[in-house]
Every structure is written in structure tokens, then in C-alpha cells.
Design a binder for these strands. Structure first.
Lengths: 152, 152
DNA sequence: TATTGTTATACTCTATAACTATA
DNA sequence: TATAGTTATAGAGTATAACAATA
């Protein structure tokens, strides 16, 4: 399928639903990546903060939530911890296990990122009128709400 | 904003437009990544093939199209070339410059990926009825700026 | 002098396999 | 034996800075 034509000046061809969705997904990811970069974070580190906003998962939980191997999660948390964003807490119920939680600094950054990402994505859909935005919200919700979870 | 709840079992909460769009973008990216992985390629390598499908850019053009630093493009093309997917052609107009093009094997893989990615994204929107899909196509096109003027 | 591209370097991110400690 | 997590290792991907060759 066609790539997002970042270097072309006229992007007014009619797109099929696949190209439109793929280009939209790249536009959203680019937006999120830029916001994260503004806080000197990778998108993955930002996603980590998002996961930890409402949870205190074990390393294994975290790996599953981010679809990473457990060894990748170890490195991710090592780097986040080194930057003072998260900390490992010994589990009281399983001596092998850690619970990962945000530090105060991590919570501060998480709040900033949430606000900025919301603003940036809102700006992305600003070309639509309010009914269009509501329709997009509804359709996107329906697509992600019907995801087969059983497949990994 | 909330993370795609990969580890939760029911995704039927009402989502705001930002969360819905972010989750949709991750769903699309995950789908594309899985298709690419099925051909033993990263998503970036697959994007590279997509760019080269209709173009024969210089290294600098390529870096711009993929929004990479020129040094990153060097490594990307080195790896793709090592796998026999692309080749560097000396420019006839600028002795400093190369044109990057697909090999026969690269074209073969590109065609397969295009077909599989289209099928996978189509499957993603299958929960919607045909008017919903058309509406999603229209809204996404408008957001990414590729809507024909007549429909604006 | 400016541009094209590579190299050297350092870091993030990713997975596999082997390992330790605990269940 | 099985599970939770780390370590060792290898590789992709990313950017910055310095560099060579050419424009």
C-alpha cells in the first residue's frame, strides 16, 4: 500500500480505506512520538508511563501489556528507573516478583504527556467538524472494541 | 491517555476521540508489524519497500520520505541490500549520489506485502458495515489531508 | 563553501538462551 | 518442575559529529 507521501506536495488523490487508515495511523504515531520527544522520551517510555498511570503491574504483567519479551521489559524498566521515572517494589506475596510503580517525577511527567498528547491528537482531527469527530470516535471505537484478543 | 488495554478482556468502555484514535493507530501498526514479521521483515523495512514501489530516490530523498537522518538511511539501505531487496545505482548526474531501487526479489516481496497488508487492514475494519467503512475512509482521508477538493 | 553520503560512536529497543531464586 | 526475573549476547534502528568526495 502507498506510503504517507511526506515528500509530495499534492496529496489529494482519493484514498482507499486501507491507505487512509494506514496513513492516519502513521500520523497519530508521529504525533505521539513528537510529543514524547519533547519530554526527551521515546514513545515506548511514554507508553510505559501510560500503562503505569492506573496500574502497579508485575514485570510479567508489564511485558504482556506492552507485548514485550520479559527480558525486554527488564531493560525498559532499567532505563526508566535510571531516569527516576519508575521504581521496583518487592512483592509481599511472591519473593520472586516486583511491582513496578511511578515515582513522583514519573507521575508529573505522565500528567504533562497526557495533556500534551490529547491536545496534539485533538489538533490532528481539527479539520473535521464536530459531527465528523463524533462519527470518527464511534467508528474507531467500534474497530478497536472488536479486536480478537485470543490471538496473543 | 489510556493505553490500548492489551491485557483487559472487555474493551467496551466509551472512548474519547483521542483514546479511540490512539488505540486504532496502535491496532493498525500492530497489524502491519505482524504482516511484515511474517515475511521476516521489520515494519521499517516494509515501509522502505513501499516507498521504493513507485520511486527510485536518492539516499537523501529516502531519508526525507522516511523522516530519518541520512546516517540512519545508510544503515537501513545497507541491511536491505545485504538481504538482496534493494540496490544502489550510481547517479548519472551527480557523482556523489546514489539512486536506490528494488531488486527483482524486492519487487516480489513488495507485492506480497501489499496484498497481505491490505487484507489484514480490511479484516480490521470488517466489524463495520459498508456505510461505516466508507465513512471511516472519508474521515481518515480528510484528517490526513488527502480528500479530493470536491468533497471538502 | 555547500551538499551527498559514509563512518565512528553511543544509545534505545528487541528477542533468544542460559541462568538464579523462589514457588 | 514451573515461574519470575535478570544477564549475556546479537542485532535492528536512531541520532550526532566528523569526515571524504564532489558540486
Amino acid at each position: 500500500m502507498a506510503q504517507p507521501a511526506a515528500d509530495e506536495d499534492e496529496g489529494h488523490d482519493a484514498l482507499g480505506v486501507v491507505d487512509a487508515l494506514v496513513q492516519l495511523s502513521f500520523a497519530v504515531q508521529t504525533t505521539l512520538t513528537e510529543v514524547a520527544a519533547g519530554a526527551d522520551l521515546s514513545l515506548l517510555q511514554a507508553r510505559l508511563l501510560g500503562v503505569l498511570r492506573d496500574r502497579t503491574p508485575t514485570m510479567a504483567d508489564l511485558a504482556e501489556a506492552l507485548r514485550l519479551d520479559k527480558s525486554s521489559a527488564t531493560g525498559l524498566i532499567d532505563r526508566a528507573q535510571r531516569r527516576g521515572l519508575v521504581q521496583r517494589m518487592k512483592s509481599t506475596t511472591d519473593a520472586r516478583s516486583f511491582l513496578v510503580e511511578l515515582t513522583a517525577e514519573g507521575r508529573r511527567l505522565t500528567a504533562i504527556l497526557e495533556e500534551e498528547m490529547t491536545g496534539a491528537v485533538d489538533a490532528l482531527v481539527a479539520p473535521l467538524d464536530p459531527p465528523g469527530i463524533e462519527m470518527l470516535r464511534l467508528l474507531a471505537s467500534r474497530v478497536v472494541g472488536c479486536q480478537p484478543r485470543s490471538a496473543r
